[in-house]
Design a protein around this nucleic acid. Structure first.
Length: 262
DNA sequence: CGTGGCTCCTGGCGGC
DNA sequence: TGCCGCCAGGAGCCAC
């Protein structure tokens, strides 16, 4: 599930459900998802404090506590935050559980254990240590262009590389390459500045549209290839059969007619 | 620097 | 019904 738009919706969800309430207990249900922090230290840093805000960077979500530390969440393929009251409402793959003084809970639910939870007092430092690039929604065109100028790889893999730009996953990348009419294997150093500008603008537009879809639970905008992204799917623009190619285990879908390789 | 292959993990689906 | 391989919106590591 989680690409940038999903994580943005998670941030809003946590803000809406779980801020400003004393944390009574912290339970680690699955130790393996903790990164560089023990259950004891995590509990010690959060218990008795209140969550007071969130910050999303790429696919990372920082949840700040008023004790000065931030809980870091990365959702992998299947993670999501779940708020509930009755203990029987705990999701089946709850890995980390906070209980608040008002009786509500916040669970980090993560079926495949590919997500992680960590703790940091320095969000910038944390991102730096992982060499995470600028957030895809925040990055200026200037920076975007400069970063891509140093890249020789194929558009699909370059854009999905979190060290280049943070937040774009498999689905979002397919959509924005479709919108910008770029073949996934196109090398970005061959793309003219006009087209690069288009790519940048489509990136923002697609991300904003998808966030909008999720938070208002609306369907995809017309013309999006995402709705047709399956074997046998047809291009919503020209009707041609979509093609798929593998990039290191991930499948990219594209329209062979609209997205020509130059 | 870039690519492809493998790994981590769980679960759902289709094929035999 | 059972078993098997494949696939899934993520990412790190390693060999080349």
């Amino acid at each position: 599930m989680p690409e940038l738009p999903d994580v943005e919706s998670f941030a809003r969800y946590v803000e809406f459900t779980s801020l400003h309430k004393p944390i009574e207990s912290v339970r680690v249900r699955t130790r393996e998802i903790l990164e560089g922090v023990s259950p004891q230290r995590l509990g010690g840093a959060l218990r008795g404090h209140r969550l007071c805000g969130t910050r999303r960077h790429g696919k990372f979500l920082f949840v700040r506590s008023d004790g000065g530390a931030s809980l870091v969440l990365h959702f992998g393929m299947t993670g999501k935050p779940v708020s509930f009251k009755d203990p029987t409402g705990e999701p089946s793959h709850s890995r980390l559980l906070l209980r608040f003084a008002d009786g509500y809970h916040l669970s980090f639910d993560c079926q495949r254990k590919l997500g992680l939870a960590s703790l940091t007092k320095d969000e910038e430092g944390y991102l730096r240590s992982k060499e995470v690039g600028p957030d895809a929604l925040e990055v200026s065109f200037q920076t975007f262009r400069d970063i891509l100028a140093a890249r020789r790889g194929m558009a699909k893999s370059t854009l999905m590389n979190q060290k280049v730009v943070a937040g774009l996953g498999n689905l979002v990348t397919d959509e924005l390459l479709f919108q910008a009419r770029l073949h996934p294997r196109e090398t970005l150093d061959r793309v003219g500045s006009r087209k690069l500008r288009t790519l940048y603008e489509k990136m923002k537009a697609v991300l904003e549209a998808l966030i909008d879809c999720i938070v208002h639970s609306r369907g995809l905008p017309g013309g999006y290839v995402l709705a047709h992204r399956e074997p046998g799917g047809k291009c919503p623009r020209c009707g041609a059969g979509l093609q798929d190619i593998k990039f290191g285990g991930r499948t990219a879908y594209f329209c062979p007619r609209c997205q020509r390789q130059s």
